[in-house]
Write a protein that binds this DNA or RNA. Structure first.
Length: 503
RNA sequence: GGCGUUAUGGUGUAACUGGUUAACACGUCGCCCUCUCAAGGCGAAGAGUCCGGGUUCGAGCCCCGGUAACGCUACCA
């Protein structure tokens, strides 16, 4: 019982693509990358670009995230034709507002036997998984509930046992699909698990929601990150279970850290908010992202003769004109901050002086920022001329406190660094208000037996480079979460490198 | 461990889809310019295309076999 891809009947339909970020935190540079490729693809073919918010994970949901995603993508110039905020004919575009749709579709699968109710508890599954791992078997759903009788199901339902709905993946055969960049990819059904489609909280998982929405929203081309390749057979099986035509699949290479691992905040700034606040220009980021994976053809000899010189510097408009999505290279490109900075400097230098000044006044020297900073120092300033001395760290890109500043008297550098890492981990998940930060930090200090003084002084040293500064928490709020966390990470990183060099 | 994907200087990409000494950009180093630092100009080092076989007059491009990296392996996306 093999299922293979039939040439997608949607191929002649008007092009519609989508980007589907999850509001789980700061807008991610990877979202911008995939967004860019989708945007270009749609623009080049007179198609529509849809923004859909995938907020089905209520555990990781961050309320402020959605608006930040809108702002960041607009800032980059990647505007969408349909989305939660602009509407469109296939709404709603927020998955949390579509739960009824998913429920109905899950019913269809239940009715035609391609899905089933599973009453296993999380503990059951965890135990089973452990056994499988111990026996060196691939961890898979054991199939306990796959063949429950109607009576057993009725009984469980009557007892109001919580359940999930799982996909009934065929036990034999394989699924083949076409990746437009790589050709055919085949997965044996032995390696496709009975995925949960509907969680016990009534929300769908990505797999169900994504397929249902892509179909209902008439998406013709699914252009997403490579990490989705492994779950594509599940999606293909779902299209088949519904009797729907499949979209084309394009899996883009993953952006990487310098060490080639999937890009992550631990090793590289990934928040678009950070890049904006740190003074990167959207044109530079778009340009840089356009360099990742190739796709932008070099000028032909004829074009060079006619004056085309730059092969690395180009605008979003030029990309729409010349970029070739099918030419994307598949090796995961390293997101090299050094080259991004060079590009940014190219754009900065090219700005007319007035525009350059305006850019400064809109970002690192905005009225709002200056006002916030001024508020913090008014009570401790003697002459206006001291303003710079008192606030320098707000305007520096990095600070490098010497050990005598950041290591508390009764602590070793090693334990201090360990605690600083704890502070970072904590702050990453803390709301960015003094009311939230203060108790969280104090609590952390208590559990690690760090006095409030040592605790706060360490942070102050790392963030301001000095043991004297305006109020710490207020300063952190003004400086911003993205940049504060970045400064912390860079400090830890620098110290790690220094320690390594000593050895 | 299983499955999948990928593989060109340190990094990002090129190389008419088999045809000369593998090209460009960033970075690095040197020189010039200059009150300094950048920018700019000139120049250099750095890969023989992951490894091993094969096909061919000829392979970075084709075939076979390895290796490594990465991804997935959740009631996360």
């Amino acid at each position: 019982m093999n299922s293979s891809t039939t040439p997608a009947p949607v191929s002649s339909a008007p092009i519609r693509v989508r980007i589907a970020p999850s509001p789980t935190g700061d807008p991610h540079v990877g979202t911008a990358y995939i967004g860019l490729i989708n945007f270009i693809y749609a623009r080049q073919r007179g198609g529509q670009f849809v923004l859909r918010i995938e907020d089905t994970d209520r555990a990781r949901f961050v309320a402020t995230s959605e608006q930040m995603i809108f702002d960041a993508l607009r800032w980059l110039g990647l505007s969408w034709d349909e989305g939660p905020d602009v509407g469109g004919p296939y709404g709603p575009y927020r998955q949390s507002e579509r739960t009824e749709i998913y429920r109905e579709h899950a019913e269809i699968l239940l009715a035609n036997g391609t899905a089933y109710r599973c009453f296993c508890t999380a503990e059951d599954l965890e135990a089973a998984r452990k056994h499988q791992m111990a026996a060196k078997l691939p961890p898979r759903y054991p199939g306990t509930c796959r063949n429950l009788t109607p009576d057993q199901i009725a009984e469980n339902l009557a007892a109001e046992k919580p359940f999930v709905i799982r996909m009934a993946v065929p036990t034999e055969g394989e699924t083949t699909f076409r990746d437009e960049l790589r050709g055919e990819i085949t997965f044996s059904h032995n390696n496709v698990d009975d995925q949960v489609l509907m969680k016990s909280d009534g929300f769908p998982t990505y797999h169900l929601a994504n397929v249902v929405d892509d179909y209902l929203m008439r998406i013709t081309d699914v252009i997403r990150a490579e990490e989705w390749i492994s779950s594509t057979p599940k999606h293909v099986l779902l299209y088949q279970a519904f009797g729907w035509p499949q979209p084309r699949f394009w899996h883009m290479p993953l952006l990487r850290n310098i060490d080639k691992s999937k890009i992550s905040k631990r090793k590289n700034p990934v928040s678009l908010v950070y890049y904006r606040q740190a003074g990167f220009l959207p044109q530079a980021i778009i340009n840089f992202l356009g360099l990742m994976g190739g796709g932008m053809p070099s000028p032909t000899p004829v074009e060079i003769v006619n004056g085309a010189k730059e092969t690395e510097v180009f605008s979003l408009e030029e990309m729409v004109q010349r970029f070739e999505v099918p030419n994307i290279r598949l090796g995961g490109p390293v997101f090299d901050l050094t080259k991004l900075k060079w590009l940014n400097s190219e754009y900065l230098r090219a700005l007319p002086p007035d525009t350059f000044f305006a850019a400064l006044r809109e970002t690192v020297l905005s009225d709002q920022y200056l006002r916030d900073v001024a508020t913090l120092v008014q009570s401790r300033i003697e002459t206006l001329g001291e303003f710079g001395n008192l606030t320098a760290f707000f305007f520096q890109d990095n600070v490098l406190p010497p050990p005598e500043v950041w290591v508390p008297k009764k602590r070793t550098p090693e334990e201090t660094l360990l605690f600083a890492a704890e502070q970072l981990a904590l702050l990453e998940t803390t709301d960015w208000t003094t009311e939230a930060i203060e108790p969280a930090l104090k609590q952390l200090g208590e559990t690690h037996s760090w006095s409030v003084k040592e605790n706060f002084m360490l942070l102050r040293a790392i963030l301001t480079g000095s043991t004297m500064s305006p109020p710490l928490l207020e300063s952190m709020v003004v400086f911003g979460k993205a940049r504060t966390l970045d400064r912390l990470r860079r400090f830890l990183d620098t110290q790690k490198k220094l320690a390594a060099n000593k050895k």
